[in-house]
């Protein structure tokens, strides 16, 4: 299992469409993906779960991947977050 903290840097935060991208990406891997903040934990493959984390710009989340393709899953999701979900800001 890989676990690391990651900061949400896009301007609008982890809103529904960004969450949709994250969930779609997570869904491509067999590993379990978990995202958590200080108070709650969300299944990285559930859009409502991810949206409910209410992660605005600057929020630090803990991302963990656990399973056969955990390395690739972790890297792909991290890249997506750091790419600001392709939103450009």
């Amino acid at each position: 299992m890989i676990t690391k903290e990651i900061e949400i840097i896009n301007k609008l935060g982890l809103h529904a469409r960004a969450a949709a991208k994250l969930v779609t990406t997570a869904g491509q891997f067999s590993s379990d993906i978990l995202l958590s903040n200080s108070s709650q934990e969300a299944n990285g493959k559930s859009i409502m779960g991810v949206v409910m984390l209410a992660a605005s710009q600057g929020t630090t989340l803990t991302l963990s991947a656990n399973g056969a393709d955990e390395q690739e899953a972790f890297e792909t999701i991290t890249a997506l977050i750091n790419d600001k979900f392709g939103e450009g800001e």
Binding site: A16, R17, A19, V23, N43, S46, M48, G49, M52
Partner: peptide, 19 residues
């Protein structure tokens, strides 16, 4: 494309456990 993305988001929500 952002309008299409909105619809895709809603489609995802329609398969979500929470809903």
């Amino acid at each position: 494309s952002d309008i299409v993305a909105f619809i895709d988001t809603h489609l995802l929500m329609l398969t979500d456990e929470a809903l």
